[in-house]
Simulated assay, not measured.
Amino acid sequence: MTELLFLNDAYASEFTATVIDLTDDGGVVLDRTALYIGGGGQPCDVGTLSDAGGANYRVVKVARSGGAIVHTLEGDARPDPGDELHGKVDWDRRYLLMRTHTALHILCGVVWRDYGAHVTGGDMRPGAARMDFELENMTAEFAGEVEARINQEVARERDIVVDSMTRADADAHPDLIRTKINLLPAGIKEVRTIDISGLDLQADGGTHVRNTREVGRIKVVGHESKGRINKRLRIELE
C-alpha cells in the first residue's frame, strides 16, 4: 500500500520513499509518494527519483495498476527493491494544474449556485480546461457574465479546505456530487472533500491551492454547444 502524500499536503514537492516492488513492465512501486496519480480530469504528475549513489530516474507517468500505484520511468534503468529514493515533483507543472483545478471548481460552484446546472463532463491541462454543463442555452453574453462572476470569487480570496466525511454523510448531502451521474465508487467508505469556503463543497481527490487568490485571473476563451442540453465553457489562466 502506497501512502499518498498529496491527499493531505498538495504543496509537498519533495519526499523520501522506499522501493517496495517492481512491476513486470518495469514500473516502480514506492511505499509513499507525493506525485499525483491522476483522476477526475486532472493529469498525473511527472518528476524525478534519485538515490544516494547519484542515479536519477525521470517519472513520466503515475497511475493505479492492478491495485498498486505504479511509477513509470523513462528509459530502461531501474532502482532495486529496498532502495531509498528522493522524489521531486515537477513543481511548476503541478502548481499550474492546482490553480487550473481550483479554477474549475470556482466555475462549477458559480454555475451551480447561480444557474443550477449539473456538470456533464470536464477535462484540464496545465493552465487551460473545459467544463460541460446541463444547460439549454449558451451565448457569448452568458460566457462573459460567467467570467465576471468567477473572477469576483477569485478576488474574494476564499480559503480552500481539504476534509473528509463518511460515505453515509456524503450520500445524505445531495449537492456534494455536481456531476449528472454519481461517479463515487460503491466501495468508498470515506469521501475526501474540497471546500471553497462559502462557495463550493464537492467530493474530490485532486490537488488544489489554499486560497482562490492563487488562481489568478480566469478567462473564458470559448463556448459551444455539445448537444440540446449540453453546453461547454473553455477557460484559461492568465
Rank of each mutant, 00 (worst) to 15 (best):
L4W: 15
L7P: 02
N8S: 15
A10C: 15
S13W: 06
T16L: 00
A17N: 06
V19I: 12
I20G: 11
D25T: 08
G27T: 13
V29D: 03
D31K: 04
Y36L: 05
Y36F: 15
I37H: 10
G38L: 00
G39K: 00
G40Q: 10
G40W: 13
Q42M: 15
C44Y: 06
D45N: 03
T48A: 09
L49M: 06
G53F: 09
Y57F: 15
H71Y: 12
L73I: 07
L73S: 12
E74G: 06
D76R: 01
D76G: 11
P79I: 02
D80M: 12
V89K: 03
D92R: 13
R94Q: 03
Y95W: 15
L96E: 09
L96D: 11
T100K: 05
A103E: 07
L104Q: 14
I106P: 12
L107Y: 14
L107K: 08
W112M: 09
R113T: 11
H118K: 11
V119M: 02
G122N: 13
R125D: 04
G127I: 02
A129C: 11
R130E: 05
F133Y: 14
L135E: 02
N137Y: 07
N137E: 14
M138K: 02
A140V: 11
A143H: 11
G144P: 05
E145W: 15
R149K: 15
N151R: 00
N151F: 08
E153P: 11
V154W: 13
R156H: 09
R158H: 03
I160H: 01
D163M: 00
R167V: 08
H173Y: 15
H173V: 00
P174A: 00
D175Q: 12
L176S: 05
R178F: 10
T179F: 13
I194Q: 06
I196C: 04
S197P: 03
Q202R: 04
Q202H: 01
D204V: 07
G206I: 02
V209Q: 05
R210W: 12
N211Y: 04
E214G: 07
V215H: 09
V220L: 13
V220R: 13
H223M: 02
S225K: 07
I235N: 06
L237G: 14
E238G: 09
